[in-house]
Amino acid sequence: MDQELRELYQEVILDHNKSPRNFREMEDSTQDSEGYNPLCGDTIHIYLKINDGIVTDVSFQGSGCAISKASASLMTSAVKGKTKEEAEVVFKNFLDLITGNLGENPNTDKLGKLAVFAGVQEFPVRVKCASLAWHTMKAALDEKETKVTTE
């Protein structure tokens, strides 16, 4: 496989695509939001349970490509247990990573497992795939009523 392609489709991403974590509906969520990418028809539904300002549970449902599914799956692990503010910081760091704002050789210490998405910055058309779950999570955090779209 080509090096650039390998950077995009890392083992962790392929694994989360195949066996996404927290892939379920949440009946007792406190807030949720739906996201949609009209360009490819991908849909995602994010469920949050927030108690005393802390995200105690996150889950998702929907259909999408490997990048969007793995991103949603890893997102659920990344924000679980965080305060609302901490979750927003992770969101911002993730967006900076995939849009290339952290530079060519980003310091990914703060990002933990999310660092596997560094390869996305080389694929501008796939940035929306990686960010859909995150924008949708942010909308759920903010309890926005409108559906998130990438366009």
Partner: peptide
Amino acid sequence: VHPHDIGTFLDFEGVAIRTGH
């Protein structure tokens, strides 16, 4: 395998196809 992943992979083989709705 989602069509978008197929599209990206094939692109690296030089193959241009359409993926989506």
